[in-house]
Nucleic acid binder design. Structure first.
Lengths: 302, 302
DNA sequence: CACTTGCCACCTAGGTGACAAGAT
DNA sequence: ATCTTGTCACCTAGGTGGCAAGTG
């Protein structure tokens, strides 16, 4: 789907790139949320496949980047509640560097080491969910999946993929933007969105897997890698976990939902994050963002 | 993609179901078009794969309908010009019975015979192009393809597929609707759309192919049926034609475009068709069409 | 040595008509 | 006899990590 957004995401959408990731941000119902529009202030987001994400995170998640673009696994998927059912929303993602470091992997110690300062930052892009814009009722009806999002290391990519530097670490970020139909809505655009970061979705961008245990977990849990599976009892257990992780995760999350802090995302509105990055001014992403979004899944040729 | 259209297609969108198909309708620039809005009065639509459509039409096109839904082949695809690049449009299709007859195929004479009056009409549905709504610039940028459209004979279908009666003949119809942002736009909604019918896209709905030559042409030209191809020289010629039909068709159409009447669609605005159906009142499709469109490709479970 | 690229076999997911069996 | 349904082998299209070769 092609969508053009003019002035939807104006002044208020400030990108806090290159900031040390910090959590949690503003807590729900806290005083910092009082400045948010009613259409976004009650929005709750729940990460799907959270247990699988955590399995990867414990090993140190790696995501392949290729010239032509590679999907993420696990896929970033969320369940959303608390939207105004009749209000229109745009949903999007971006990726911010966790730090300004470059890493390398040492096989003999099976660990990541700092290998210097970060390379020059890759062009910052945002990935609009292809169903955007849509009313809150649609977004809340079922899981919202970013399975069409692809990662690339090609700085000149023109397929709308997310450009990342290999051997750098990133934090996915999820944004809910209320499409304010009132005139001059850009004047208080900062009120019309909220953002969410799930720490367990951090990952290292790589061109080839470094940690063999990550490879094995990918093979065990990604259906498209089934060709590489062996039939060890242990492996079959992993298969089972992966294939049942949806229900498995939901059972856990039903209990945790909105109760344990660890299962809550850090709702870092940009305006909230900014003070946490002293000495680093958040960058305004253009006065007005005139962006023609190309759905990666559609491809440029379609 | 899920889209809700409220009041977009109000009073003016009258369906002239069960009318004898007639062509041409209002010709471009004719006096009947003077009442159309400027956003739609200049719209031109060109059928893609026209040569292939005509090959099928000469044999008597058949389209399979199944309980779970079957795609059309050839796919209904068009190139559009003459839109207002910055105006928003909704594109959609529907299917009208060519007549009120039921048919049967006689294998010994290889022809279709009338087998009585039509069965009770299947529930009338419209298929919104999943990219709707989008600005004219997007629609005109490349071929618009209805490849996610599926045909079914299941009267109780809840997947949003087009419901047709088997052994009945249908004419696909294509509608361009300008999304008028002005208040009370429904009062003159009839001005904000135009419709196109390509006679060579008529077909008989069937649950199994009747005419063996249709089967052979499907096998020869549909990539998904490659498994049934033989390697006769004659067959290979058909393969070549099919695989090159895109360029082959375009070359023809470039010459014909807006010059020969046969390559022009009959631009039958509903208001124009109505007088051609004496004794059959066009049906108003609800005062306001509150329709939740489910893209067939996404499926209900997504 | 550290990292990247291109190609490959092997999957998932789903679109074909053939065909046998079922329905009326 | 006529028409429909479900299953099947065989495709297209594209997402996997392995691996050899390439780059610096």
């Amino acid at each position: 789907m092609y969508v053009e957004f003019y002035c939807l995401l104006s002044l208020g959408l400030l990108l806090s790139q290159n900031c040390e990731f910090s959590l949690p941000g503003c807590t729900d119902g806290g005083p910092l949320f009082s400045s948010k529009a009613p259409q976004v202030c009650g929005v709750r987001v729940q990460l799907e496949m959270q247990a699988l994400w955590r399995q990867f995170d414990q090993l140190g998640t790696e995501m392949i980047v290729t010239k032509s673009g590679r999907r993420m696994f696990p896929t970033f998927q969320v369940k959303i509640s608390g939207m105004d059912p009749s209000a229109e929303y745009v949903l999007l993602m971006d990726f911010i560097p966790v730090d300004d470091k470059r890493y390398r992997y040492t096989f003999h110690s099976s660990s990541w080491l700092v290998a210097g300062r970060a390379d020059v930052a890759a062009p910052s892009r945002m990935h609009f969910h292809p169903d955007s814009p849509a009313p809150g009722s649609q977004w809340m009806k079922q899981t919202v999946s970013f399975d069409s999002l692809k990662l690339t290391n090609n700085l000149l990519d023109d397929n709308g993929h997310m450009i990342l530097n290999s051997m750098h670490r990133y934090q996915p970020r999820f944004h809910v933007v209320y499409v304010d139909p009132t005139p001059n809505s850009h004047l208080n655009a900062y009120r019309n969105f909220c953002s969410f970061s799930f720490p367990e979705t951090r990952f290292m961008a790589v061109t080839a897997y470094q940690n063999h245990r990550i490879t094995q977990l990918k093979i065990a849990s990604n259906p498209f890698a089934k060709g590489f599976r062996t039939s060890d009892p242990q492996e079959e257990m992993k298969d089972w976990k992966a294939e049942n992780s949806m229900n498995w995760t939901e059972n856990r999350e039903d209990a945790d939902y909105c109760s344990l802090p660890v299962s809550l995302p850090s709702a870092d509105a940009f305006g909230c994050l900014a003070p946490r990055c002293p000495g680093k001014e958040p960058q305004a992403c253009g006065q007005f963002i005139h962006r023609r979004v190309i759905n990666a899944a559609s491809g440029a040729g379609r």
